[in-house]
Amino acid sequence: MDRSEDRTPPARGVALTAVAWLLQVLGFAVFILMGIGKLAGWEDFAQTFEEIGAGQWLRYFVGVAEVAGAVGLLIPRLSGLAASGLTLVVAGAAVTHLAVLRDSGWALPVVLIVLMGALAWIRRAETASLPSFVRGLLGRD
């Protein structure tokens, strides 16, 4: 079997794998907390989304995206894709804090962009292997 048919992502060093898992667990903790807070309607989140002016539907949408992304971070094959999606979510948050709210709330999203971007890069082989993995599951090889 040549490499193009192999659904197993290439191995990486122990240190880089440990860093990936550290980022995955840290990201899970942050995003599950923030996502649940948005879905539960914690006052700070509800007020922030009110100030944005897009309506509370956006709070629910972002909350679902954060919870789904957090769960995806704990699944190694999906963690790179989840990290990429979460990077987009927090990029939106950083831009919103800078351009719409004009406050200092952009700092945490920028840190999360860097951390989730690093995780997406570390797990890029897993992300690249997803199409062939799914084709294999569907029996379409």
Rank of each mutant, 00 (worst) to 15 (best):
E43F: 00
I75V: 15
V95T: 12
Y60A: 07
G72Y: 10
L98R: 05
F61D: 00
A94F: 08
L86W: 07
L88Q: 02
V62H: 07
S84N: 03
E51A: 14
L78R: 11
E50G: 10
G35L: 06
A70R: 09
S79R: 07
M34Q: 12
A68L: 14
L74F: 15
L73C: 05
E50W: 02
E66C: 12
G53Q: 02
A83S: 04
Q47H: 04
L86S: 08
A68N: 03
A46M: 08
R77G: 10
T96R: 05
L58Q: 05
G53N: 04
G80V: 03
F61W: 01
A65D: 01
A40E: 14
F61K: 00
A68W: 02
T87I: 02
G41F: 01
I36Y: 13
G85F: 03
G92I: 04
L81N: 10
V62M: 11
I52Y: 10
L73H: 06
L86P: 09
H97C: 06
V67Y: 11
G37M: 01
M34L: 12
L98V: 13
I75Q: 05
G63V: 04
V89F: 07
D44P: 11
A94Y: 02
A54D: 00
A82S: 14
P76S: 12
L73Y: 10
G55S: 00
G53E: 08
V62S: 13
V89R: 03
K38M: 09
V67G: 12
S79M: 10
K38G: 12
G37K: 01
A82Y: 09
V90A: 13
A46D: 13
D44Q: 14
G69C: 05
F49L: 00
A83D: 00
G41Y: 01
A68P: 07
I36K: 09
T87C: 13
V95R: 08
A40W: 13
L78A: 15
L39S: 06
A40T: 15
H97F: 05
L86G: 07
T96P: 07
Y60I: 08
L73S: 03
K38I: 11
A94I: 06
L81Y: 08
L74E: 15
V89C: 07
G37P: 05
A46K: 14
T87M: 12
E50T: 11
L81H: 06
A93K: 06
L88Y: 01
A68I: 12
Y60R: 09
L78Q: 14
I52T: 00
G63Q: 04
G35H: 03
L73K: 08
E43Y: 00
G35C: 06
T48H: 05
A70W: 04
L58Y: 07
L78Y: 12
A91M: 15
T48K: 06
Y60P: 03
G55V: 02
G55N: 00
G80W: 01
G69H: 01
S79C: 12
F45Q: 10
A83Y: 04
G35W: 02
K38C: 10
S79H: 06
G37W: 01
